[in-house]
Design a protein around this nucleic acid. Structure first.
Length: 333
DNA sequence: CTAATTTGACCCCG
DNA sequence: CGGGGTCAAATTAG
C-alpha cells in the first residue's frame, strides 16, 4: 500500500479533501432545511469524489488480492476433486468440511474493510449496507464490552458467495459500530427496493465502497501496485470459467464492478461461482468524515441521519457506465 | 410452511 | 489451554 504513485496519492488526497469540503457544505445545507435540489447535487458531487478516491484505492486492493485468492480457490478445488478422501466415503464429511472452512479462513481473507458506522438515532443496529446478510454467530470478545456478531452473505449456499462481515459496537461509543468486511461478494443480489419519495441520484452513485484495507496474512509484502489493469484477468481455471463468463447475462456493468473473481470452483460446493462481483457497499452514504487526513484510508466514519438515509436506495447498477467510469477508469487503470 | 436468528458446541491456532 | 470463528440444532419471525 505504501507504493502508491505520487500522482495517485495526490489525486486521492485531493479528492478526499474535496469530498470533505463538500460534505461540510452539505451539512450546512441540511440544517437550515434547504432545498432538496441543492442537497442532492451536493451529495452527488461528494459521492463522485469519494467514489473516485475509493475506487482508486479499491483498484489497488483488488490487484493485491486477486492472485492469492485464485490460488486459494484453485487449491481447495484440487483438494476436493483429486484425492479420494482418506476418511469415509463421503467427500463432504463434517471433518473434511471443517478442514475446508479453516483452510478458507486462512487463505481467503486477503482483504477486508473496516468501516465505522454511527447508527441512526432511534434505530438499533448499524444501517443497512445494501447486501443481504445472514447472521450465523455471535461471540463475546475478550476485553470488549459488546459482543461481536458474525454475518455471511445470504447467498452463500445458492451462489457460493463467501462474503462475510463482523459487526461490533465500539466500546467508547456504543452508538457506533465497527463493521469489518471479509471477502468480496460474488453473488448477484436483487437490489434495494425502490424508495417512494426520494431523489433520483444518478448512476454514478451506483457503486460505493468504504475504504479498503488489504491484509495479507502471509506477511509477504507482495502487494505490488501494478498500474495496469487486466480485465478480465487471465482465467486460471480453464474449462469452466469461460463458459460461465459467457453465460453470465451481459450486464453492462460499471467498470468498477466488473472485476470480480473470474474464478469458478465447481468442486468446492454445489453452487455456481458467479463471475460478477457486486461491490456496492454503502447504502448509507451520507455525511462522510474522514477520520484522519493522511494515509489511513481504512477508517471512514459514516454518519447517516434518518433524513438522508433513504436517499440512495434506488441505485440501478445495470445502467450505463457514467462519465466517471469511462474517463476515470481509463485514466487510472 | 420457509427463512432468519439464537446459542452452545466444536474446531483451529497462537 | 483459551480466544475467536464457524456450525448446526433449536427456536423464533414472517
Amino acid at each position: 500500500m505504501e507504493k502508491i504513485g505520487t500522482l495517485k496519492r495526490k489525486t486521492v488526497i485531493s479528492e478526499l479533501t474535496q469530498g470533505r469540503e463538500l460534505a461540510n457544505q452539505l451539512k450546512n445545507q441540511i440544517y437550515p432545511a434547504n432545498s432538496r435540489e441543492a442537497c442532492g447535487s451536493l451529495v452527488e458531487k461528494i459521492l463522485s469524489s469519494y467514489e473516485k478516491a475509493l475506487s482508486l484505492l479499491n483498484c489497488m486492493a483488488v490487484l493485491g488480492e486477486t492472485s492469492p485468492v485464485s490460488a486459494a480457490i484453485l487449491e481447495s478445488r484440487n483438494s476436493l476433486v483429486g484425492t479420494p478422501t482418506s476418511e469415509g466415503s463421503n467427500p463432504f464429511s463434517k471433518e473434511q468440511n471443517q478442514r475446508e472452512v479453516f483452510k478458507r479462513r486462512k487463505i481467503l481473507p486477503k482483504w477486508s474493510e473496516e468501516v465505522r458506522v454511527c447508527s441512526v438515532i432511534g434505530q438499533e443496529g448499524p444501517p443497512d449496507d445494501g447486501y443481504n446478510w445472514r447472521k450465523y454467530g455471535q461471540k463475546d470478545i475478550l476485553g470488549a464490552s459488546f459482543p461481536r456478531a458474525y454475518y455471511r452473505c445470504t447467498h452463500r449456499h445458492t451462489q457460493g458467495c463467501l462474503a462475510t462481515k463482523q459487526v461490533q459496537k465500539i466500546d467508547e461509543d456504543p452508538s457506533t459500530f465497527e463493521v469489518n468486511y471479509r471477502g468480496r461478494h460474488t453473488c448477484i443480489q436483487e437490489r434495494l427496493k425502490q424508495n417512494k419519495e426520494d431523489y433520483n441520484i444518478k448512476e454514478e452513485d451506483s457503486n460505493h465502497r468504504p475504504g479498503i484495507k488489504v491484509e495479507t496474512p502471509d506477511s509477504t509484502p507482495k502487494e505490488e501496485i501494478v498500474p495496469s489493469f487486466s480485465f478480465p484477468s487471465t482465467p486460471i481455471i480453464s474449462d469452466n470459467v469461460e463458459t460461465e463468463f459467457l453465460l453470465e447475462p451481459a450486464k453492462e456493468s460499471n467498470f468498477t464492478e466488473s472485476y470480480g473473481y473470474p474464478f469458478i470452483s465447481p468442486a468446492t460446493s454445489d453452487c455456481n461461482y458467479l463471475s460478477e462481483s457486486l461491490c456496492q457497499m454503502n447504502d448509507f452514504c451520507v455525511d462522510y468524515n474522514l477520520q484522519s487526513s493522511e494515509s489511513d484510508f481504512t477508517n471512514i466514519v459514516l454518519t447517516p441521519t434518518s433524513a438522508t438515509n433513504s436517499l440512495f436506495r434506488d441505485w440501478d447498477f445495470t445502467t450505463d457506465p457514467v462519465e466517471f467510469d469511462s474517463s476515470f477508469a481509463l485514466e487510472y487503470f
